[in-house]
Design a protein around this nucleic acid. Structure first.
Length: 710
DNA sequence: GAGCACTGC
């Protein structure tokens, strides 16, 4: 644990005197006491030259230590808070120290997110006075802004794993820096496991792992452990440049964190100097609800305090234009309240936040290996997450963070969030590792080992798909090709097997459309809502969502990929453009892999596609996600009789439910919903996946068929 | 008639 930003008071102060609202326990100072307003300062050094600015960054003091430790050790774990400048400066120190002198050698820096890779590389190019893409560049999916002369290359961690497939020893890099490693993205974790192996084979390679304090020692030990003479690792701590944040806890737990959020925000507004508020909730519904209730208080509060209140929601599925409102400066004498999901914890940074309200919960994806299903669940945050949220209030001036739980509750939280690798399906991971030459995926050195059940589920699925053989080895060409495609295994199988069903073109379109969410625009009410539904019906078919998506894609292409056509049909133009881009990339892969794709040309130009063939093709990839209609009216999975429902967003929702379906994924909210559903014939499961439905389930299938006939 | 945290190849 990092030390708290200020000394923690040992005793509880008397409860707040205000008659209403939660009572606060204080870590330092008064939760709602008076203090003077300081002016906003975003970059106090902006009148200095770029070079002078660089030298004023806290990391500059550690420059020599970093270079020295990297000479002495193969791995250095750099621990530093935000604002230390480590991401922008360390690569430049390395370049200046001659780490790219050998021809063709470069420094690679990974980021978990695309925007970060791009924007940071822009900043570094600017500091070096060079055009982006030359000495300093970046590579993310669909966007390669690098050249042979690039010495400092920013990439997403996913790109690094892909690069390993082409170049297992990563020979182009002299130093690799894994930034934001504490976020433990699935790709960072895989990269760390693989780098541990590479370091043993390449003693000239250096690795810098940049992390928050919590897991620094574990990361060092991960790179340190191993047989005699294994690479050495060490930790370097660098100071950050953030302002102190006073943290306040509740005296007693609250039953409803939404009303507590509202009470706390109102109290901040009544008692605290101007400064914006960021409140964390778990989902869209909560955010919208709290925003609505706060807006209702807005007028009364202005009369009472003389300050306006402007309330802005912020979550991922919000249209980009609406998201931007959270970043706009509020008008004078106005306090901006941003009510956000976890998107504001790491993905976006908003300036001017002084007060943070943290409900203490987060919605995360969980994976159940027994049923093979994903669900979204609301769980308590971790201490690391709570610190990160609080820190959002101290970027520009000292801040205050209000945690809607007791200090004891905080102490009992997990130290860090469970790594992604331990809560998603492992099938894609196993496929990647096998393709990278890791034969024994069970014994692979994961930074955090996933459960055995999860491993087995992943292996079984890959075996069922034909990507692994009986010995657990990657099959050729199918398994190898599946690993090459940037698609989840079931979709990859569907696309690669499509030539058998003469529908590769259609399968590519469907796969691309499934990567894009929210293609259909749904106005909340009124005439527009009716119009939107009418438009959607034009594309809908009784066979289900996959073919409906295909119709949308085909229409988009047929009408010249026009934004006007999208507006008329209530479709998201940008989403469809993205689908076109993804499809082009997939097609490129197929050509590279020499997979037969010319089948459509065999048919008449403009001829209708054969829907049955497409459905069979879908089944060839998604047979593991099959369900049948139960007399109760809901569905049951074929594999383990798990109860499922058709999601209200499906075109089949309002229709007569088909007896048998396959689905793209399951989403658990109030019930377990199948998303993207296609009606199938049950015998296709036998025909197309005999190895999967041969035993055990056969009895179920025949029993159900008998039931249907009865 | 109900609803989807956030990324990434």
């Amino acid at each position: 644990m990092p030390p708290p930003p200020s000394g923690r008071s040992q005793f509880q102060k008397p409860a707040d005197e205000a008659p209403q609202g939660p009572a606060w326990k204080e870590e330092r100072g008064d939760a709602f006491g008076d203090s003077t307003v300081s002016s906003f300062v975003y970059n106090p050094w902006r009148h200095y030259s770029l070079d002078q600015q660089r030298q004023r960054l806290p990391i500059f003091k550690s420059r020599n230590s970093i270079l020295y430790l990297l000479e002495k050790h193969q791995t250095v774990v750099v621990v530093g808070e935000t604002g230390s400048g480590k991401t922008t400066q360390i690569p430049q120190y390395l370049l200046e120290a001659g780490w790219c002198k050998s021809p063709g050698m470069r420094i690679g820096i990974t980021q978990p997110r695309r925007v970060a890779a791009i924007t940071i590389s822009q900043r570094v190019a600017e500091e070096r006075g060079a055009p982006l893409g030359r000495e300093v560049g970046y590579v993310v999916r669909f966007d390669d802004c690098s050249s042979p002369e690039t010495k400092i290359k920013f990439i997403t961690d996913g790109i690094l794993v892909r690069e390993m497939m082409a170049d297992p020893l990563l020979k182009q890099y002299s130093v690799l820096m894994l930034d934001e490693a504490h976020e433990r993205s699935i790709h960072t974790d895989i990269a760390m496991g693989l780098l541990r192996k590479i370091l043993k084979k390449r003693d000239d390679l250096k690795v810098i792992v940049s992390s928050a304090t919590l897991d620094a020692e574990a990361l060092r030990d991960f790179f340190q452990s191993g047989p005699e003479g294994s690479p050495s690792a060490t930790i370097l701590t660098v100071e950050g440049r953030t302002f102190p944040v006073d943290v306040f806890y509740l005296n007693d737990p609250v039953a409803n964190y939404m009303s507590a959020t509202i009470d706390t925000i109102l109290k901040i507004h009544r008692t605290q100097p101007l400064g914006d508020v960021l409140a964390f909730l778990t989902g869209q519904e909560e955010v919208d609800h709290v925003c609505q209730l706060l807006s209702e208080h807005s007028d009364g509060l202005e009369r009472e305090t003389g300050h306006r209140l402007t309330v802005v929601p912020l979550y991922g599925s919000l249209p980009p234009g609406d998201q931007l409102k959270a970043f706009e400066l509020p008008p004078p004498k106005t306090r901006k309240i941003i009510v956000a999901t976890n998107i504001a914890e790491t993905s976006v940074t908003i300036n001017g936040i002084v007060y943070v309200v943290d409900c203490g919960f987060v919605k995360i994806r969980a994976f159940n290996p027994l049923s093979g299903m994903d669900s979204l669940i609301i769980v308590a945050t971790s201490r690391a997450s709570a610190e990160q949220r609080a820190g959002r209030g101290g970027r520009n001036r000292p801040g205050k963070a209000y945690r809607l739980y007791t200090e004891d509750a905080f102490k009992s939280l997990e130290a860090a969030t469970v790594p992604e690798l331990q809560r998603t399906s492992l099938a894609p991971v196993i496929l990647q590792l096998k393709a990278l030459g890791v034969d024994n995926v069970l014994r692979f050195s994961y930074p955090a080992a996933p459960s055995a059940e999860n491993m087995i589920q992943g292996m079984e699925l890959l075996f069922g798909l034909g990507a692994l053989d009986g010995e657990g080895a990657l099959t050729e060409p199918l398994g190898l090709h599946m690993a090459e495609l940037p698609l989840q295994p079931m979709l990859a199988k569907m696309v690669l097997g499509a030539s058998e069903f003469q529908c590769t073109e259609e399968a590519l379109s469907i796969a691309a459309m499934l990567q894009v969410e929210n293609v259909f625009i749904k106005p909340a009410r009124g005439e527009q809502k009716v119009n939107a539904e009418r438009c959607r019906r034009k594309f809908s078919v009784l066979e289900g969502d996959h073919v409906t998506l295909l119709n949308v894609y085909a229409g988009f292409v047929k009408f010249g990929k026009s934004s006007q056509w999208c507006r008329q049909n209530f479709l998201h133009y940008k989403g469809l453009c993205r689908a076109v881009e993804i499809r082009r990339q997939l097609q490129k892969h197929l050509v590279k892999l020499k997979v037969r794709t010319s089948d459509t040309a065999d048919r008449m130009e403009g001829a209708l596609y054969d829907i049955d063939n497409i459905r069979r093709c879908i089944v060839s990839g998604f047979f593991a996600n099959a369900a049948y209609l139960h007399p109760s009216g809901s569905y049951r999975t074929v594999r383990d009789d798990h109860e499922l429902h058709i999601h209200p967003g499906s075109v089949l929702y309002a229709e007569k439910p088909p007896a048998w379906v396959v689905f793209n994924e399951v989403l658990q909210t109030t019930q377990e919903f199948m998303r993207d559903v296609t009606a199938i014939e049950p015998q296709w499961l036998y025909e197309l996946a005999p190895h999967y439905y041969q035993y055990g389930t056969e009895r179920q299938l025949s029993a159900k068929r008998a039931m249907e006939e009865a």
